[in-house]
C-alpha cells in the first residue's frame, strides 16, 4: 500500500479541530453532543447466500466472527465487526487495511457463490456521542432509535437528512466512572456527501452544544 500520509479524508478540508471553538464559545450550555471523524477503517462488502452453511462457515473461519443473520444486527470478534446489511449482504469492518481483509475473504470463498468488494475508500465515518446524540440523529433520520428498539450493537441503513447512511450504535467511550455519557453512534456516509452531512449535523447540534474531537 502507498504511504498513508498521502491520504486525504473527505472532511480534511474543513479543519475539524479548528472548528470546535466556534461552537463551544457561542453557547453557555454544556455540550450535549460530541462529534468527530474516525480515522480510515477497512470496509469490505460481502455478498453470498446466508443459508448456505459452507459460505457461512468459510466466512466465520476467515474472520473469526460469525455471520450475523438477524436483521439490523452486528457480530464481532476482536477488532473485526460484521454488519448485517441485507439478507445476502454484509459489511466487514476492520480498523485498517480493507484490501487485505478482502483478499482473505476472497481466498476463503474461492469457488463459492459469493462476491467480495473492498469499499473502504468509499465512505468515511462520523462518530457522534453524548446525552443528546439520539435527539440529534432523530432530526435527520427516520429510524426509531429509542433503546427499546435500537440498542448498542445494532446497525441499520437509512437516511440522515438527504444523505444515505449506515448507522451503528457503539459503546460510549465517555461512559466512565459509572456516568452515563449517552448513546454513541458511528455514522458511515459516502465521501461525496460527507461535507454536507457534517455541516448539517453541526447546524442541527447547535441547540445542544457541540464538542468536536479529533475522532
Amino acid at each position: 500500500m502507498a504511504d498513508s500520509f498521502l491520504r486525504h479524508s473527505p472532511l480534511a478540508h474543513l479543519g475539524l479541530a479548528g472548528r470546535a471553538g466556534a461552537f463551544e464559545a457561542g453557547t453557555a450550555i454544556e455540550a450535549g453532543v460530541t462529534m468527530g471523524e474516525r480515522p480510515y477503517r477497512g470496509l469490505v462488502n460481502l455478498r453470498g447466500p446466508a443459508g448456505d452453511k459452507a459460505f457461512a462457515d468459510a466466512v466465520q473461519k476467515a474472520l473469526g466472527a460469525a455471520l450475523p443473520v438477524e436483521p439490523n444486527t452486528t457480530t464481532g470478534k476482536g477488532d473485526v465487526a460484521v454488519f448485517w446489511l441485507g439478507p445476502d449482504e454484509w459489511w466487514v469492518v476492520t480498523p485498517s487495511d480493507g484490501p487485505a481483509t478482502a483478499d482473505k475473504l476472497r481466498a476463503a470463498l474461492a469457488g463459492q457463490k459469493a462476491a467480495v468488494t473492498d469499499v473502504s475508500e468509499s465512505r468515511t465515518c462520523i462518530h457522534i456521542r453524548g446525552a443528546q446524540a439520539r435527539d440529534l440523529l432523530a432530526k435527520g433520520c427516520p429510524l426509531d432509535l429509542h433503546p427499546r428498539v435500537f440498542a448498542a450493537g445494532q446497525c441499520a441503513q437509512s437516511l440522515c437528512a438527504k444523505a444515505m447512511i449506515t448507522l451503528h450504535q457503539v459503546a460510549n467511550d465517555d461512559a466512565e466512572d459509572g456516568k452515563d455519557g449517552g448513546p454513541a453512534y458511528d455514522v458511515y456516509v459516502l465521501n461525496s456527501f460527507a461535507e454536507y452531512l457534517w455541516l448539517w449535523l453541526e447546524d442541527a447540534a447547535r441547540e445542544y452544544g457541540l464538542r468536536i474531537t479529533s475522532q
Binding site: 439490523n72 429510524l143 441499520a156 441503513q157 437516511l159
Partner: peptide, 10 residues
C-alpha cells in the same frame, strides 16, 4: 420483509 417497519422515504 427483511428490515422491518420503515418510513416510506426509504
Amino acid at each position: 420483509p427483511y428490515c422491518g417497519e420503515r418510513d416510506e422515504t426509504e
